[in-house]
Design a protein around this nucleic acid. Structure first.
Lengths: 242, 242
DNA sequence: TTCAAAACATGACATGGATTATATTCTTTT
DNA sequence: AAAAGAATATAATCCATGTCATGTTTTGAA
C-alpha cells in the first residue's frame, strides 16, 4: 500500500499451487517436470492499468496468467483502440512470438490486480517439445480462441450494434458471470469505453443501447456493476439461431 | 469430363511427394513416419463449388490441403454469408474438431479444383503427440492465423470500406500475387460477391470502390482477373502506419 | 472535504454504406 | 447460336450509427 504498490513485485508461487493450474496448459504435467518449470519462470504482479507489454515491443518469452483479467488491445493508425481479446487465469499470452521474430502486434494491460508468470522463449519451446500434453493443450486453447475470433468477425459483418451488445453480455456472463439469486452479476470491471471497443462501436452508441436494455428489463446497473436479469430475452436480442 | 466430373475422386498421392509438403505441418517428418501417414490418409479431389463439409456437420478428422484454394464461410441467422478465411496448399482445416465435440462452425467450399487429404481424428492425434515438430508447426500456423484474424477484427472496428478493400488487395497480392512485368496479377478466382463478404460489405459498395481504384490507376481488370498496378498508392489508401 | 478529472449520459446532426431498383455484360446450358 | 441465368455495374434513397456538443455523475487525488 506504500510507494511499492505501483511497481510490479515478484511473488514466490510454484506451478503446482497455481490457482489456475487445472485450466492451464501445464495441467497434465507431473511433479518433476512441473518443478522444473517453477524454477525457470518469473512470477510478477501487475496492478490495474499496468502493461505487460506494448505494441511494437520485442518479445522474449511466454506469459502465463495465474490470476486476473488482462485485455489485449490494438491501436490503429488513427489512435483508436480495440480490445481484441480478454485473457484470464489459465490463459497464455505471447505464443505467436515463440515462432516468428515479429514484435508484439498488440498491447497487454492488466484490468485489475493480476498475477502473471513469465517463461523464457527457449526454455518453454523445450517444454512444449518434450511434453505432448502441453502441446495439445496449447493447440486446444488456440483452436478455441480462433473459433471465438471467427465468431466475432461474422458478428461484425452481419450484426448490428444491439445484437453485438447482447452477444457481448452473454459472453461476459459465460466467462465472468456469478449467479446471485434471480440475477447474474458480471464479475468484471469494465468501463463503457472498454465495452464499446470490444464490439467495435462508439461509447455513446453503446451507452444508448445499454439504456435501452435496462428499460427493457434485461439489465440492471448498480454503480459500475452489471446484472443480467433476463437471459432468455437477451438471447432473443442477440439473434442467434444456429 | 463425364458424369464423374462432379463427384469427388480418390487420388493416389503420398505425403512425401505432396506439392505442399514444404509448407505443410508434416514438413519436418522423415520417411518411416511419413509413410505411416500416407497409409492412414484418404486423398480426394474437389471440383470448384463442392463442399468439404457444411456448417453443423459432425467432424471425424483433419483435412490437409494439398493444392487449391478453399474458402471457409459462416452463414448468420439472416442467411448472410461471410468468408472468414481462405486456406491453400499446406494449410489444415478442422483442427478445432480434434479437441471439442462441437460440430463444424463453418462451411468449407472449394474455390477451384483442389486436392485434399483427410486424416482420421484418433490417428492424427497420435501423430501430433509422437512428433513434436508436427505439434510445433500446428501451433505456429494457428498463431499466425490468430494474428491475421485479430488484424481483421481491428480493421473492421477502425477502418472504412475503402481502407479494408486496399488491405484485402494487399493481402491477396501477398498470398496469391504473381509479378507480370510492371504489374502483379492476383492468381485467384474471386467473384465481387466473395470479395465483399471477405471484408464485410455489400457487393454494390465493393464494386463502387473497385471502380474508384481503377479510376485512380491502382488497379486494372481484364475480365475477372485483377492486376495491381500501383502498390505504393494502394499502401497509402490502406492507411497502415505501424 | 474539496477539487479536478474521468466516466457516464443524452440530444442534435451528419454521413458512410446498406438497400432497392434497373441495366448491362459475361457465362453456361440447351 | 440462342436463351437463360449469373455476375457486374451504377444511380437514388434511407437509415443505423458515428460525431459533436453539453451536462451530470462518479471517482480518485490532494
Amino acid at each position: 500500500m506504500l510507494y511499492l504498490s505501483h511497481m510490479k513485485k515478484e511473488l514466490p508461487v510454484d506451478c503446482e499451487h497455481c490457482p489456475s493450474k487445472s485450466s492451464g496448459v501445464f495441467c497434465d504435467l507431473k511433479m518433476p517436470e512441473l518443478e522444473n518449470i517453477t524454477h525457470h519462470k518469473v512470477s510478477n504482479t501487475y496492478k490495474k492499468g499496468q502493461t505487460l507489454f506494448v505494441q511494437g515491443n520485442h518479445p522474449y518469452g511466454l506469459f502465463c496468467i495465474s490470476k486476473g483479467n488482462i485485455k489485449l488491445t490494438k491501436v490503429g493508425p488513427d489512435g483508436k483502440e480495440s480490445i481484441v481479446r480478454v485473457v484470464t487465469g489459465g490463459d497464455i499470452l505471447g505464443h505467436r512470438s515463440l515462432f516468428t521474430e515479429d514484435n508484439y502486434s498488440g498491447t497487454a494491460t492488466a484490468m485489475e490486480d493480476t498475477e502473471v508468470c513469465f517463461i523464457d522463449k527457449k526454455f518453454i519451446i523445450g517444454v512444449i517439445q518434450n511434453n505432448p500434453s502441453v502441446a495439445m493443450n496449447i493447440i486446444n486453447k488456440l483452436s478455441r480462441d480462433m473459433g471465438i475470433a471467427e465468431n466475432k468477425l461474422t458478428s461484425l459483418h452481419q450484426k448490428n450494434v444491439r445484437e453485438r451488445l447482447a452477444e457481448l453480455l452473454l459472453a461476459l456472463k459465460a466467462s465472468h458471470g456469478v449467479r446471485e439469486g434471480q440475477r447474474v452479476r458480471i464479475d468484471m470491471k469494465l468501463t463503457r469505453e472498454e465495452m464499446a471497443t470490444m464490439i467495435g462501436t462508439a461509447n455513446e452508441t453503446l451507452i444508448r443501447f445499454m439504456t435501452e436494455f435496462k428499460e427493457a428489463g434485461i439489465l440492471e446497473q448498480e454503480g459500475k456493476v452489471i446484472y443480467i436479469t433476463n437471459e432468455e430475452e437477451l438471447l432473443n436480442w442477440a439473434n442467434i439461431n444456429y
